[in-house]
Design a binder for these strands. Sequence first.
DNA 1: TCGATTTGTTTATTGGTTGAATTATTTGAA
DNA 2: TTCAAATAATTCAACCAATAAACAAATCGA
Lengths: 364, 364
Amino acid sequence: MTASRAPVRQSSVRAHNLALVLQTVANSTDRPSRAAIASGTGLTRATVSALVDDLIAGGLLTEHDPAPRTGAGRPAAGLALNAAGPAGLGLEINVDYLAACVVSLTGEVRQRIVEHGDQRPLAPADALSALDSLASRARAAAAAEGLTLAGAALAVPGLVAADGLVRVAPNLGWQDVDVPALLPGLADLPLIVDNEANLAALASAEGERTFLYVSGEIGIGAGIVLDGELYRGGRGWSGEIGHVTVYPDGRPCRCGANGCLEQYAGQEQVAADAALAASALGIALAAVVNLLDIGVIVLGGAYAPEFDQLRAGIEAELTRRVLTSALAPVTLRAATLGPDAAMRGAADAVVQAVRADPAAWLTR
Amino acid sequence: MTASRAPVRQSSVRAHNLALVLQTVANSTDRPSRAAIASGTGLTRATVSALVDDLIAGGLLTEHDPAPRTGAGRPAAGLALNAAGPAGLGLEINVDYLAACVVSLTGEVRQRIVEHGDQRPLAPADALSALDSLASRARAAAAAEGLTLAGAALAVPGLVAADGLVRVAPNLGWQDVDVPALLPGLADLPLIVDNEANLAALASAEGERTFLYVSGEIGIGAGIVLDGELYRGGRGWSGEIGHVTVYPDGRPCRCGANGCLEQYAGQEQVAADAALAASALGIALAAVVNLLDIGVIVLGGAYAPEFDQLRAGIEAELTRRVLTSALAPVTLRAATLGPDAAMRGAADAVVQAVRADPAAWLTR
DNA sequence: TCGATTTGTTTATTGGTTGAATTATTTGAA
DNA sequence: TTCAAATAATTCAACCAATAAACAAATCGA
C-alpha cells in the first residue's frame, strides 16, 4: 500500500545508503572498518568506501587507528561518529523550570543549563523570551567548544500541532501559542516543537524498538514508539493516557470527564496512595497492551523513583487483564534519565534526524 | 531512525517507481495517460513510458482508447488496471461458515462461495480440509474465467503469529494450529493468515488512511489502520479491544478478568441492551482515541445493522471522555460490506500486495 | 492545408552501484 | 631476511535507471 507518493531517483539511492552506513556506525559498539560495514549492510566495499569518503568530508565520521590486532592482513581503519560533528540543541519548558542542553552527534551531553522558576504566572511571550536567551547561552557555549548545531527541538507539556503551534498546555495555562515566532534567536535553525512525553520517550529507548513510555507528572503523558519511530497520531495528539477512563463513574477530572487515570495516578496520588495508583495505572496500561500489543513499558517522571512501590500492583493488573499475558509477558522498566528525559529527547531528536538523513546535512 | 537495514540498488529504484506508477493508475478515477501519470508523480514522461511498457508486458496494466476529447494535441492512450491480471483468493473460516472469494486486480469480486455449517464440533484438520476443497472450487472457477491467482489470504477469528500459526481461536476452540500445513491445495500459492478484524479493516477503508475498525461478533476485535498500513503490533496481536477493561469490578469475562468490553458490547448484549452496549463501547473507544489520536471509527460486524441505535450513546461518551474532542470531533461510520468484510479484506490484501510491489510479480 | 498543441518515443548524458583487478599493509613461515 | 598468504581499501570499466532534449505522431482550429 505504501509506495510513498514520491518518485525515486539515483540520488535517493545515495541518500538512503549514506544513512545506512552512518546508522551502521552509530549502532556499532566498536569502531567498524569499511569492510565490516560492507559485509554488515550488503553493500560492496567499493560503494562503502565512496560513501564513507563523503561522510568524512562532510564532518559526520572520523577515521581512527585500528583497535586491536586480529591475525594477518592490512589493519583496518576504525570509523566512528564525529564528536565534533553537527550537534542538537534540546530545550524544555515546564511548570517550574526552563532547560537547555547540547548533545553531540555521538550522543554526549556537552552543555546543560537548568533555570528553576515558576513559569505559570508568566505570559507565554515572556516565558519563551527567557528560554530564548537561555538557548543563546547554550549555543554560545557550544560554539566555544567548536560545535555546530544542526537544529533545535523544544519539549512542551501540551498538545502540539504539526507546525509548532501549541494548541493547549493546561499546566502552563497556554492556549494557541505560536512558539517558533516567539523564539527569534533560533530563527536560523530548524526547530521541532513536540510534546514532552513524546520526546522523553525517544530518550528512553535504550535499544528498544517498540515500547510505551509513561511520564507521571501533574498530568500523565505517554510516548508511543513503534518500530523505532514515534507514533504521533493523525494530528499529533497521541499518548493522552492521562485521560483514559479507569473508573467510568469515578472522580471528576478537570477535563470534564469522570474517572480519568490522571485522578488516580497523578504525581500527588502516587505519593498519597501508591497501591491505588498502581492499580489504576495497571488497568490503563492493560488497555494499551491489548490494543497495541506492546511488550515493553517504561515508567518515567514521578513514577521512576517510586518504581519498586508500583511494580507489583501494575503487574498484577497486567497479568489479569492482558489477553495475551500468558503467551508473552509484558516487561516493566523504570526510566533512568530522571527529569532530563524530555530535554535530552529533544536534543536526541535533532541528532537522530541528522543520522537518519545525512544527505540533507551534507548538501545543506 | 528507520534507514531500514537493507541496501538500495538501482533495481530498488525501478521497483519503487513501478509501484508508484501502478498505484497512481489504481487510485485514479479516470484512465490516466502516461503524460498524466508523469505530471502526477514527478517522473519524466520517458521514464513513465518505460515503466508502463513493463507493466503492460507483465499483464498488470492495459491500454485503452482515449476517453473524451479535450482540445488539441495527440490523443492520450488511457491506462487501467488489467481486469484479467493477477487476482487474490480470499478465505474465511468462522464459527458458522466457510467462505471463499476471488477478487480481480481491479477490485471486482469474480467468485464468491459461502458454505454455512457449524465449525465448532470439527477438528481443525477437518474444518481446514473442507476449506481446502472450497478454495479449490473457487480456484477452478477463476481459472475458467482466465484469472491467475497471485496468492491467498485466510481470515481467522483468533490470534495469529507471523508464520501463519494460529495460537488461539477461542470461539472455534482452536489452539496452536499450523494452518498452512493443513491447506495442501494452496501449497503452491503465497498464503497470508491473519486475524479477521485486521482483514475486515482493510476492506473497510473507503479511502480513509488512518482509522479504527471495530467488529462486534461473539467476541469483539479491532483492526488498526495507520497511514494506510495495518498495525499488527510486535507479535501480531494488536486490536484486542474486546478485553479492554470498561468496568474494573464488573462482570467476569471468560478471559479471567472483570469488566471487559466484551461482556457489555458483545453480539448478545447489543441486542439485549443497546444503551449499555453503546456506553461501554464509547468508553473503550475514547481510550483508543486518547491514545492514538484516531479521527475515524468504523463499526462493523453486528454493530453495523444497529448503528443508528448505538451512535448517539457512543458519541456522548466520546465527546465527554476524549481530551481533544473540542478541537476535532471523531467521525463514526457504519461498515458497508456486511459479513463479507473479512473475506473481502483477505482477497484485497493479496491484490494490494501485488499493487504495492509489482516488481516481485513481474520477476516471479 | 498548415501551424499549434499535446502525447509518446528515441538518444545521449549523468549519477550511482557492482565486480574484478590492483595496491597497501600486515602476519607468519621458510 | 624474505616471501607467500591474508585482509583492507582503492581504482576502473561495465551496467542500470532516470533525465533532458530532440523528435515523431496525431489531433484541433483557423
